[in-house]
Each structure stands twice: as C-alpha cells, then as structure tokens.
Design a protein around this nucleic acid. Structure first.
Lengths: 300, 300
DNA sequence: TAAAAATACTCCATAGGTATTTTAT
DNA sequence: ATAAAATACCTATGGAGTATTTTTA
C-alpha cells in the first residue's frame, strides 16, 4: 500500500525546518536523531524532492523545502483550528439548533425552556420556527429542524417523543358571554356556541383531541368552525363568533374581547410534546432535551 | 505520548462520511470493518465529539461530523496541492533562480546559457541581476542570489566555482589610434596609453588580473585610470582617454569610436566563472550548472 | 430477529532506540 | 579531525485481520 506524508512526518519536518539542525530538532521532538533523519528522508523520497541542504555546519532549506514549510504551517494551523472547532461542537457549547413549535406552546413552557437553554449555551445558534403539526412532521423528516414542540405528539416510528407535563384545557369565550355559574362554562353552554377548532389536519389534530375529549364526557360539539391556527381562532372568538378550547397556559394572554373560563367537565389534560429524530444523537439536541425536561419538572 | 488525528484517520473518516455506512466505507478503503470502526471511535474520543449517529438502517453525520467533513476535505485537498507543488519543485521543473552576473559575461556564454535553460525549464522564474564582483560576493553570502557569473572567480570557502572556458583578452582602443603592426597592438604600445581598468575592488579584481598579466610579460601598466565597470571603461576609450583590455567576446559589440585589437603578447586567458554556494544542493541550481557546463563545452 | 457496528484477541508492520559508520568541512 | 547526519540492527507499539458479541429498530 502506498503510504503518504503523515502528520508525524509533517511535524518532524517543521521542527527541522525551524531548528535547521537535526540533533536539536530531535531533542525538541523528544525523539532520537536517527528516526528523525529517517522520516525526513522518507518524505524526500515520497515527494521526490530534496528538502534540506545538509552541510557540515549548516542545514538549510531548499526551494522545495521552503515552500513545503510555508504550506505545511498553514495546513497544520488549519488542522488545529478544526480540532478546536470540533471539540467545541462536541461539548455542545457551540453549534446550531433549529426548533419548530406550535403556536400554543409560546404561552407555556417554551419561553422558559428557551431562556434556560440560552443561559446555559449562549453560543448555540437557535432558530425558532412556528409551524403546525403537519409542517413540524415534514420538517423533522426532511431534517430541516432538530426539535419539534407539538400538540398532540407527532406519531412516527422515526421520532422519539417526550411529554413535558400536562395542563387543563379552558374555554376562550367572548367577554360578552354570560354563563350560569360565574367564571365557569358548562359543557352544554360550550356546545350551544360555535366551536372554533384548529387545525383540522393532519389527523390526529388538536381539533380531534378536543372533539373526542368532549364526546367522552357526553358532549357533542356539532357546530364546528375550523381555522388554521390558535391566533386566527382567538380572533374569531374576539368578534363573538364562538368558543375556542385552548390549553390553560394560553389564558396568560390578555386580549381585547376575550375572557377565559374553566369548563364544567372532567376533561383530559393536554400535553405539550417534544419530538426529535430517533437517529439524532448529537449533543446539542441532547442538552436541549435535558434542559427542557428539567424546566418541565420544575414548572409542574 | 499524546497521539493526534492523523492522515489515515482523516481518510477513514471521509470515507464513512461519504458512504454513511461503515461496511461499505471499509470496502472502499480496502480494510476490514472493525479497524475502521476502531479508528473512527478513536477520533471521536480524541476530539471529544460524537461524529456519527449510528442507527440500524442509517449512519448520519452529527453537527460536529458535518463540520469536520467540510474542514477535512479542504485540508486534504490543500495537502494534495502541496504535494504536487513540491514534486514539481523537486523535479526542477518549477521554481526560481536568481542569477547575478558581471557586465562582460553578457557578450559571451551567458546569453546562450540562459536561452538553453529557458528552453529546458520554461516554468522556472529567472531573475537576472547585473553586478560587479563585490556585489556578487555579498549577494551570494546573503543568499540573495543563487548563481554568480564572475570574472575572475569569487574566492570564498563557502562557494564552489566552475570555469566555463577561457578566452583571450583583446584591447579596446580608440579607432583613431595607429599601431606599428596592422590590427595588432604591442605591449609597449598599450603601456604608452592610459590603461582604463575596472573595477579596482574587491581584490583580486579583473583590474588586478590585467595588471599582473602584463607584468608577467614584462610590461608595467603605470598610467592607470580606474572605472566602475566595463561600460564606463568603453565610454572612456571611445573619447580617446586610453586603452582598455577586455575579454575577446566583448569585441562582438560594435561601438562608435572603438576598435578591438589583438595584443602582441603571450597573455593568460581570462575565464568566466560560475559560482554558487557550497551548501546549495537544490535541483534548480544543479540543473542550471549542468546546462551551463554543456553550453560552455560546446562553445569552446 | 436480522443487519450492522462494536469488542476480543492475535499478528505483523513500522516507528523508535542504541551503536556505529559515513560525510563534509 | 570532528561534528553531525546516515545506516544497521533490534525492540516494541499499535494498526489490521478473524471471530464473535452487542446494539438497534
């Protein structure tokens, strides 16, 4: 097998080129002089070029040697640079993280998680990309994002999913709406209004979760209005078009024309899920997941 | 001893990064799979970074791996470039050659030598630097030139000298000057005129050579005028200031007011010398010397 | 459970060390 | 004549191969 100029030979050469003396170079390299001479000779043979003029009182670089010195210096510097960069990437202290998330997550855990991650890994470049579940799924499959905050969880063999705590659902209702019990809306009272739901697809969507949830408590939401996302749904509520069932954390928003009410039913809680590719083992994702779980545990 | 990322490991890594499959990469590298896995693992340990996500049906690059791939590609390309460049320099097919020469050499061998060298090594960058012997000496000591054409030879323990053939000396005389024998000037007739000599220093100079040369034939050149170089000396001859003894090859010039005459004495011939550093073993110089000697041999 | 990567263990190639010779000035 | 590099020869580290186990989806 052909054997090519290797790193050890390069540093041997650099040492001789700088010391211009085989003995001293060997000392500096902590090797004996003969192996050094041999390695230099091997380089000269492989490259077919005399690199040093060997004299009694002086070793000097030939033209070829001088060029090689200049070029190897740069190459070895590049290599050191590279090693440093990879080490930092390996620690997770640097790098990139592309995070997709559903709109409703912006009211709850997500901001806290992001804040905590930024505090711990300020050098990691975060992309935050709002999407619906369908887009999250596609983006994760195509490796366009690294992390997806979805509701409900993305269902794919290629993904791992973690639930970051559950929360109640509440009703966002027009602030003009009066209910029998103060601050609480009953299942029947919800069903009497248009149910503003989002998004319709992909199945199972958050809309499906809400419909099934009510159905299990014996309430049919028959008057359905579908929208694309939470923001649109809330706008419709604000102009009195109907009632929208949202995660409790959304009620931290103040919005003109809307009030939030507890629902008089034993509804299932909704879970925010953190999804990423099963085959992703990089530190950046790992560290992010760890921090996300810590934050979730503390917040519950 | 600490062992660092080496070339072999780099090419192993590149192969896996491109194949995204350890088995296929091993095949491509003509090694078995286990050593490949081991080397990759070693890189990961040394850099403290996971480079590949290993999955059942897929190996993918982590962020660190992707960066490493990009950077190593460039480094290995640079290295290949470098090897090519050094090989060419080693063949003598490329490079640089800085040649110093005394003015009188421009009439004789030098142009032919340069032409021949250029024909054989068109890619070698030649610098041609006219100098007197003192400057040639200094420049060679300081490694500012690689080759010196001097007359007489440079005398230094650090240099090797080759004589490129000898030639007679002739007299450059004002064209108004009449001599006893047609076309020949006797020793006495030379001594009767001012002897225009160049240069005075460093000793032994060409001027010394001429004075000693005549002295050995019993002619004292007592009326001496020293100039810096051949061109100045010839100018003085042209205005009738005296006679200048020059190498025969100089007579190939036509110059108004000057005629060249044989000298009626058994004078020693003058030799053009090619000098270079003893410790210079580079191919460029070697090839040049070889060609110079070939040309000199043919021309004699 | 099956494909692929990781480990265990052996062997050999090659880099390094010591003693000595050759080279160059 | 002598300092320094090159060669001879031996030793040992570590990379490669074969057989096998572990992992992961």
């Amino acid at each position: 097998m052909e054997k090519s100029l290797n790193i050890k030979q390069m540093s041997y050469f650099i040492a001789v080129a700088e010391e211009l003396h085989f003995g001293r170079a060997a000392e500096r390299l902590n090797v004996a002089q003969p192996p050094l001479s041999r390695q230099i000779k091997q380089i000269e043979e492989e490259l077919g070029a005399l690199l040093f003029n060997r004299g009694r009182n002086a070793v000097t670089l030939t033209q070829a040697g001088e060029r090689l010195y200049v070029r190897l210096q740069k190459i070895l510097a590049d290599l050191d640079d590279t090693k440093l960069e990879i080490r930092r990437l390996g620690q997770g202290a640097e790098g990139r993280l592309r995070i997709g998330f559903v709109g409703s997550s912006t009211y709850g855990l997500l901001p806290t998680i992001i804040k905590s991650f930024r505090a711990n890994f300020p050098q990691v470049n975060l992309s935050l990309l709002p999407m619906n579940n369908a887009q999250l799924h596609r983006a994760l499959i195509r490796r366009e994002i690294d992390i997806a905050f979805a509701r409900p969880a993305l269902n794919d063999l290629e993904f791992t999913t973690r639930h970051l705590g559950k929360e109640d659902v509440v009703a966002a209702v027009p602030d003009t709406l009066e209910t029998a019990l103060n601050g609480v809306i009953s299942g029947e009272e919800v069903a009497a209004q248009n149910a503003i739901l989002y998004p319709e697809y992909p199945r199972p969507s958050f809309a499906d979760f809400i419909i099934d949830n009510f159905e299990r408590q014996g309430i049919q939401l028959t008057k359905r209005v579908f929208t694309m996302d939470l923001q649109t749904a809330l706008s419709l509520v604000a102009i009195g078009e109907g009632v929208c069932i949202v995660p409790a954390s959304v009620s931290s928003t103040r919005r003109i024309g809307i009030k939030f009410m507890k629902i008089g039913l034993e509804l299932e809680q909704t879970a925010l899920s953190l999804n990423h590719r099963l085959d992703e083992r990089g530190v950046q994702v790992n560290k992010f997941v760890t921090i996300a779980q810590q934050v979730a545990r503390k917040t519950i």
